[in-house]
Simulated assay, not measured.
Amino acid sequence: MPESVSRPDNGRTAPAAYGAPVSPQGVDAPLRRSAVFLTLVVADGDEAMATVREVLADLGGLVKTVGFRDLANPVSCTVGIGSRIWTDLTGQERPAELHPFREIAGAAHTAVSTPGDLLFHIWSDRQDLCFELERLLLDALGTAVTTADEVSGFRYFDTRDLLGFVDGTANPVGRDLPESTLVGDEDPRFAGGSYVVVQKYLHSLTAWQALTTEQQEQIIGRTKADGVELDDAAEGQKAHKTLATITDEDGEHDILRDNMPFGRPGHGEFGTYFIGYSRRLWVIERMLERMFVGDPPGLHDRLLDFSTPATGTTFFVPPTTVLDALDAG
């Protein structure tokens, strides 16, 4: 998955004040211990669209309903809207870069494209609060939607993924955070919004654990114990962290990763849910091209030999003004 390698509180702004639920659309809300990633497909017809519009317009109310059950542990929810329903739902033209996830087929591995009209990224330090907010959302949406994918994530030890590496160290911090994640003057209609790409990666842990620690570190491009960057390879296959770093004449382009581990050991399922927020969708797309096609082409990211994407979907997280306007629609 695009480099997910942490920082205190994900390198973000401070949490909401004690006793205050976090408002929806807070892309920079602090990383929590539990999360739900819910991808839905909206049914055809005006009635279904009207139901979705009503629920999204009141998303803040649902967050408050759940959040006030434990004021010391905020719950938050960010909603992303896919390109297929964007215009019908909002009555507006799509954001400049919004389009369906584009399948990327390399010689050895493929980044698949899967359905999804709505993404709900729910997170809290309490798993039961995530569960409750998801339950209320699905109850409110009813038959207007079907579930395309549902993943419950958790923080694993000191923010490591199930491959054993610290997750999130490359995230932007401070003033770089909004610069990297929030749309600006380049698309003023949607300034303050963010593009988000999600992929569910399944790991072959047995094969991964058969490697030596040194082999794993060379694939990731960081030390396993403390996440220190290793020198880039002079030639041949590049490390994951190198392929997932995008630079051009304007410098390095960061994204915000909220990745979380998930799994069901009894079913042999172990994975990482990649979720990347970006001001520019093309940055994430370039990362994936470098990973799956290779740079140069043919030299793919070796992490993909052990991690297979089962989903791939793109959304736009609108500013709250867009959600508020749905109430008048």
Rank of each mutant, 00 (worst) to 15 (best):
S194E: 01
W86T: 05
V112W: 00
V198Q: 05
R94W: 02
E217S: 09
G153S: 09
H99R: 15
F120M: 02
F190N: 12
Q216T: 03
I220Y: 02
C130H: 10
W208K: 00
G174K: 14
R84S: 07
R84P: 00
T90F: 01
G184Y: 04
F165P: 06
R94A: 14
F120L: 08
E103H: 11
D149W: 11
A207P: 04
L136S: 09
L136V: 15
C130K: 06
P100E: 15
G106N: 12
G91H: 01
L162A: 02
I122K: 06
T87E: 05
A111C: 07
A111W: 06
Q218K: 15
A140H: 11
Q199W: 03
Y201V: 08
Y195A: 03
E132M: 15
G193P: 07
C130W: 13
H109W: 08
Y201M: 11
T114L: 00
R102I: 15
L98R: 13
T159V: 14
Q92A: 08
L211R: 00
G184P: 02
V198R: 03
R189N: 08
L162F: 02
A191I: 11
L182G: 06
S194N: 03
D167S: 12
D158C: 09
D161M: 05
F165E: 04
G168Q: 07
N171E: 08
I104V: 15
L138R: 13
R135K: 09
G82N: 03
L141C: 07
Q199I: 05
G174D: 15
Q199P: 01
T143C: 07
H121D: 01
L163M: 13
G153Y: 04
F154C: 14
